[in-house]
């Protein structure tokens, strides 16, 4: 099946030209980076822009760096770049664990992390993980630059805080101030490359502080502030884990769709939260399983 809608394609020489073009064309224009979502949406007629602005040429948007004690993921950094980054492996293992669970190698070679949060589908894998890292989205537009905390970025399914004419230039991930370890759990219908039925990200800090976020169980990737408050300063006893799992379910609003029912999502999130917390805490203590394992396949409660 080919793409039915026709559009113009431009690849400006500079970022400021791209922004001018986007500002002029407003909502009729779309930014094209890896295109792994956008080309699919065009094919399915979910979007019908008049113009695509390809930003792949801009050197300043490429690669992964470290600045002001934060990881800088350029808008063109792919999930494969994340997986290959020594910096990420050493200091942001939760990010790496998530990247390894995104689609397949052939998609990850093209799909960008920034694109993932710009598509902003409820099941996007980067959302929950960037949420627990308190990431910041950096945007440039006709009126200059602005920074949007990830907590204010997602507005609804496929809706973000971006305004017409703006381009996301990077997302920065602050290095946790304390020793931290995490766990990303992605529930899928089968072992292969599936979109998430539900996902849970946990970041545990020394001093018994925990951050939790959920994917695919609400219109956007959300944090679990009540569960975080319950856990703060506490030792993770079996009883507390149980309680946390139950409370987490109250913080989500899952729906029934092609991948799962809302009942199943709720039941599983309870289990996922327990396992993610336990795994993150064990990793923090230096005795957890290696990053990248699927804790839903483990034989633990």
């Amino acid at each position: 099946m080919s793409i039915a809608c026709e559009f113009d394609y431009r690849k400006p020489k500079t970022l400021s030209k791209a922004i001018k073009l986007l500002a002029k064309r407003g909502r009729d224009a779309r930014v094209l980076a890896g295109g792994t979502d956008l080309v699919g949406w065009l094919r399915d007629s979910l979007v019908a822009p008049d113009l695509l602005v390809d930003i792949k040429g801009f050197e300043e948007l490429k690669g992964i760096g470290f600045k002001n004690r934060a990881l800088v993921l350029g808008a063109l950094a792919t999930f494969s770049d994340v997986l290959e980054s020594e910096l990420v492996a050493q200091h942001f293992p939760l990010l790496r664990e998530m990247a390894g669970m995104v689609a397949s190698n052939g998609v990850r070679n093209r799909a960008t992390v920034v694109g993932n949060i710009c598509s902003a589908v409820p099941c996007c894998d980067a959302g929950p993980v960037l949420q627990v890292y308190n990431a910041v989205v950096h945007v440039r537009g006709p009126n200059g630059k602005r920074r949007v905390p990830i907590g204010q970025w997602f507005l609804g399914p496929r809706k973000t805080a971006i305004r017409p004419g703006e381009i996301v230039t990077s997302v920065t991930v602050p290095l946790p101030a304390k020793k931290a370890a995490g766990c990303f759990v992605k529930l899928k219908r089968y072992r292969g490359e599936d979109l998430a039925q539900a996902s849970v990200a946990v970041l545990a800090f020394s001093g018994r502080e925990y951050r939790l976020a959920f994917g695919a169980v609400a219109p956007i990737a959300v944090r679990g502030p009540r569960t975080e408050a319950l856990l703060k300063g506490q030792k993770l006893s079996a009883g507390l884990l149980e309680e946390a799992g139950k409370l987490a379910v109250e913080e989500i609003v899952p729906i029934t769709d092609i991948r799962s029912t809302k009942e199943y999502r709720s039941l599983m999130v309870e289990v996922m939260v327990r396992r993610a917390l336990k795994t993150a805490a064990a990793r923090l203590a230096g005795r957890g399983p290696a990053y990248g394992i699927n804790v839903m396949e483990e034989d633990t409660p």
């Binding site: 099946m1 394609y9 094209l32 295109g35 792994t36 080309v39 699919g40 094919r43 695509l52 390809d54 792949k56 494969s80 689609a103 397949s104 190698n105 052939g106 998609v107 070679n109 093209r110 490359e193």
Partner: peptide
């Protein structure tokens, strides 16, 4: 034609990618 099966794989600058998710102009 939606990135799931890999049958359309090509190497683009040496890396395997899904040619069903790329516009020719790119």
């Amino acid at each position: 034609e939606r990135g799931d099966c890999g049958a359309c794989t090509i190497l683009l600058d040496g890396k395997p990618v899904r040619s069903c998710l790329i516009l020719a102009v790119e």
